[in-house]
Design a protein around this nucleic acid. Structure first.
Length: 881
RNA sequence: GGGGAAUUAGCUCAGUUGGCUAGAGCGAUUGCAUGGCAUGCAAUAGGUCAGGGGUUCGACUCCCCUAUUCUCCA
């Protein structure tokens, strides 16, 4: 059965059972600081499980793009070595929020697998939670009984807490689960050994395909479990595995989801898939990682050097590394696989299709950049290998291996591989130690201790955001919790209603204070977590149960609104000036400035930037009133021509902000009329990634100050130039004059040097077989470089020379000694040594090379003495013969 | 959020305990050779050594601060 039909069958099946089918949420998570990527189907429903959001549909089904590359689930290093690990995969799920529970979940799962998918019942095994004494939990008899009606009791296996008790994290909703396993071994093997012996034993042919989670408890920070009022069902079935079973394959990578990509890799590298284990692993790695990276970019997450973007970069790099080592590709090739990926997934995921050009471009540039990193590391490693060989050692210090990895991004396994080719190894113990140190440093810096929520009001639930209309409100605290990091403690507050805007859509969170009439509690930030609006406070009020006046910092809010509305106008103007391909890729809006990242493939010209600025300022002067639809449907918003952003969570009600022709879906705060912005000025336009450009701009008072500053600078320049008619020409003239004067000065300096040289040539004395020049210059000299130049010239003109020159530079004595090579060789003279001794005479120090050295001192009166000392040392050495 | 590193000519990079009058390759310009081209030969230009402060007789080199980029951990 073709994979797209499998997907469709699943969704149809549950739609017929009264489920609302919703689209996959973005793989890149916004508005949840505890998670970077969607790593399970339930992520987008977390708010509901935590009771922070109302239930809109009691039954939902979907297929969810998931990425497991960080945190609790990290499968990255496993990918490729077997047939079933992936970084990115699809999770098919059906959900009940306080509606049906174990009976229907089990019944329907069975029906779908055996009736619709026609999987052989003799190959299916299920597990149920066996109970756990330490938690005081009994065997999940309920689930057992429902299963027993459908399947032979020999096929119902008990499972321990690790496999059969599901938890979201250290605290939060949790409950027992029931897994469905399929035995896909050939009949001969199945006869020889009963499949139930292999369930959850890591056999690649006896695999879990579906996990039914029955959420009935909440775990507190203390570890205690409490029963939930509303019980939920959360199921997840690995789409790729299901396809493997249905297509009678022994690996996910042999299904029609991956084969087109793998075959394309084979044809590009001219290596057949199945030829050898190493190249097979590499091909699977490349195919898997391409999928993950392409979807991440389509969801708006570009590779970068920090956080989520860095994780994406690392996935791609792992693919490049395998490509480089095992498929021997040292030029970018992964980007060439995009058409193959589109052919398998482009239909089901339109975002992939609409952004493929960007994805291809970004992957190409990343490949190239990392290949360069590898080259640099390779060079450094070869240097170390040479040193090792010279020193006749056979192990590379772990410190150096770690430095290669930590600082230059050169992978350890590649280091080991190259060393092995040279019969060398890495000192792993040292490496691991350095790694541990690195980890500990990070942990101690990032550790945040968080306590349980304390419920002040019984239900602890919050009210709405009222900040679109008001900047202050009467509020009560619903709940709070204490947090502690290494060097400070603070509090999170949830209010019954709030005027504070929580960080979202690029706009920063509000600041301000809570006032109880006696003291003001500062609110330093506001953000959303699992649907809660959280206010960060420096301390807790004396009495948390009273009523407070919540006040948002108005100035910051107004300036932020200026920048946010200006961002919309900018977005619209860019589309006018550059074309409709311009699409938002990210933005930052705070009180100081705005930053807008967008798709565009060339650097903007000066004229384009000016045109955009003019257009935005025009709109500002037109004083366009804001039109706001707070609760409208997605369809209506689309009809209005709203530009929807990437990564929007599925919602049926949306907010639309309109300023004339600019219509956007946006939750942020805006000005009433564009005229409030006052003025708009672009400060910079630059590139942040392949195909993505960034504009930074300022508005209002900040823009005004910028122009005032410019005027001031201009005025002061004009004043200096005696207010010429044409400033540019006046400066050009100055520059020309300066360079011609500089040339003259250089000519005079050359002449002076020449004269000085001639002068010194007259002072050549014979001293034995050698020529001696010693002199104290009468005139002070501005630049010691002149003495150096003369010394070097004399060295070329006078053979067997010993030269010592003293001069006053500024008001300090300066000494230079130049010795000819054969003097150094024959008499073991060293200019640096001589000058050190001589400089002591004038209370100074110095040094240099054997043939030329300089020194300075403090006592100019003793200059002559110092020169004399140098000469004396020379004579002594020469006469010693 | 924390650690490490880098920033030198238009580009890619050397510069080894502080002192070699800052270099190489590619590119650019000019000239020469060849019927022409690929190319070859020769010469020339091009540098606030990221920016700012400090230590020193002397800093590309050592120390501090800032910016940007890379990289690892979380």
């Amino acid at each position: 059965m073709n994979s797209s039909i499998v997907r469709q069958n699943f969704l149809d099946f549950f739609r017929n059972k009264g489920h609302e089918v919703v689209p996959s949420a973005a793989m890149v998570v916004k508005n949840d600081p505890t998670l970077m990527f969607t790593n399970a189907g339930m992520n987008q429903f977390k708010d509901i499980f935590l009771d922070n959001a109302p239930v809109k549909f009691k039954r939902i089904a979907n297929t969810q793009k998931c990425l497991r590359v960080s945190g609790k689930h990290n499968d990255l290093e496993e990918v490729g070595h077997d047939g079933y690990h992936h970084t990115m995969f699809e999770m098919l799920g059906n959900w009940s929020f306080g509606d049906y529970f174990k009976q229907e979940a089990i019944q329907w799962a069975w029906e779908f697998l055996t009736d619709v998918m026609k999987i052989d019942k003799e190959r299916i095994y299920v597990t149920i939670f066996e109970g756990d004494q330490s938690e005081g939990l009994d065997r999940d008899l309920e689930a057992y009984n429902y299963w027993n009606k459908l399947i032979d009791e020999n096929r119902i296996l008990p499972g321990n807490k690790k496999d059969n008790f599901w938890e979201m994290g250290d605290s939060g909703p949790c409950g027992p689960c029931s897994e469905i396993h399929v035995d896909i071994r050939p009949d001969v093997e199945r006869k020889a050994l009963d499949g139930k012996m292999l369930v959850n034993k890591g056999n690649p042919r006896v695999i879990e395909i579906w996990n039914l989670v029955f959420i009935q408890y909440n775990r507190r920070v203390s570890g205690e479990l409490e029963l939930l009022k509303n019980k939920h069902v959360d199921t997840g079935m690995g789409f790729e595995r299901l396809c493997m079973v249905l297509q009678n394959k022994s690996s996910n990578y042999d299904t029609d989801i991956f084969q087109p990509i793998i075959q394309e890799i084979a044809s590009l590298t001219r290596i057949d898939y199945g030829k050898s284990e190493n190249t097979d692993v590499a091909m699977r790695v490349v195919a898997d990682h391409l999928r993950a990276v392409a979807f991440a970019i389509a969801d708006g997450q570009l590779p970068s050097n920090a956080k989520a973007g860095y994780v994406i970069r690392r996935i791609l790099r792992r693919a490049v590394r395998y490509n480089y080592t095992f498929l021997e590709q040292n030029k970018p090739v992964i980007y060439k696989l995009m058409p193959a990926l589109l052919s398998t997934m482009g239909e089901a995921f339109p975002e992939l299709k609409s952004q493929w050009q960007l994805i291809e471009k970004v992957i190409y540039e990343e490949e190239q950049a990392f290949l360069h990193t590898l080259e640099t590391g390779d060079k450094r490693l070869k240097e170390s290998i040479n040193t090792l060989k010279n020193e006749k050692k056979n192990a590379l210090s772990g410190k150096i291996a770690f430095e290669l990895y930590d600082t230059y991004g050169f992978p350890l396994d590649l280091t080991e591989l190259i060393l092995k080719e040279n019969n060398l190894a890495v000192n792993r113990q040292e490496f691991d130690q350095a790694m541990t140190e690195q980890r500990n440093r990070s942990k101690s810096a990032a550790a945040v201790e968080s306590a349980d929520w304390v419920m002040v009001r019984p239900d602890g639930s919050q009210g709405e955001f009222v900040g679109y209309d008001r900047l202050h409100a009467e509020v009560r605290i619903c709940r709070f919790r204490k947090l502690k990091t290494k060097d400070k403690q603070f509090f999170h507050l949830v209010l019954d209603q709030t005027p504070f805007y929580a960080e979202s859509g690029g706009q920063v969170g509000d600041t301000g204070y809570l006032d109880d009439g006696e003291e003001k509690i500062r609110i330093t930030n506001t953000f959303k977590e699992h649907g809660l609006i959280i206010h960060v406070a420096e301390k807790l009020p004396q009495d948390v149960s009273q009523v407070f006046e919540a006040v948002v910092s108005g100035k910051a809010r107004r300036e932020t609104a200026n920048n946010h509305t200006a961002t919309h106008l900018l977005h619209h103007a860019l589309r006018e000036v550059l074309g409709k391909h311009v699409e938002q890729k990210g933005s930052l809006v705070n009180a100081d400035y705005l930053r807008f990242d967008f798709l565009h493939y060339q650097k903007m010209t000066e004229d384009e930037i000016t045109a955009v600025e003019i257009l935005v300022n025009q709109k500002i002067r037109e004083g366009i009133e804001r039109k706001e639809l707070r609760e409208t449907s997605m369809e209506e918003a689309r009809e209005m021509g709203a530009m929807a952003l990437f990564g929007e969570k599925y919602r049926d009600r949306v907010r639309v902000i309109q300023f004339g022709d600019s219509v956007e879906l946006c939750g942020g705060t805006h000005v009433d009329s564009t005229s409030q912005i006052g003025l708009f000025k672009i400060l910079s336009e630059s590139s942040i990634a392949a195909g993505v450009r960034r504009i930074e701009a300022i508005t209002g008072g900040k823009a005004e100050a910028w122009y005032r500053n410019l005027e001031k600078k201009m005025n002061s320049v004009e004043q200096l130039l005696n207010s010429p008619q044409d400033v540019k020409k006046a400066v050009e003239t100055l520059i020309e004059e300066k360079s011609s004067l500089q040339k003259q000065v250089e000519r005079y300096a050359r002449e002076a040097t020449h004269a000085l040289k001639e002068d010194l040539l007259k002072k050549v004395h014979k001293a034995g077989d050698y020529n001696l020049i010693s002199a104290v210059l009468e005139n002070t000299i501005g630049d010691p470089g002149i003495i150096r130049d003369v010394a070097y010239q004399l060295r070329g003109e006078v053979g067997d020379l010993f030269l010592v020159i003293g001069a006053v530079v500024g008001d300090k004595p300066h000494l230079a000694v130049m010795i000819h090579d054969n003097l150094i060789r024959d008499k073991k003279l060293h200019a640096g040594e001589i000058i050190k001794t001589a400089a002591r005479e004038m209370e100074g120090g110095g040094g240099g090379q054997a043939f030329f050295a300089t020194a300075g001192g403090k006592n100019a009166a003793k200059l002559e003495k110092a020169v004399g000392k140098a000469v004396e040392m020379f004579r002594k050495a020469v006469e010693e013969e």
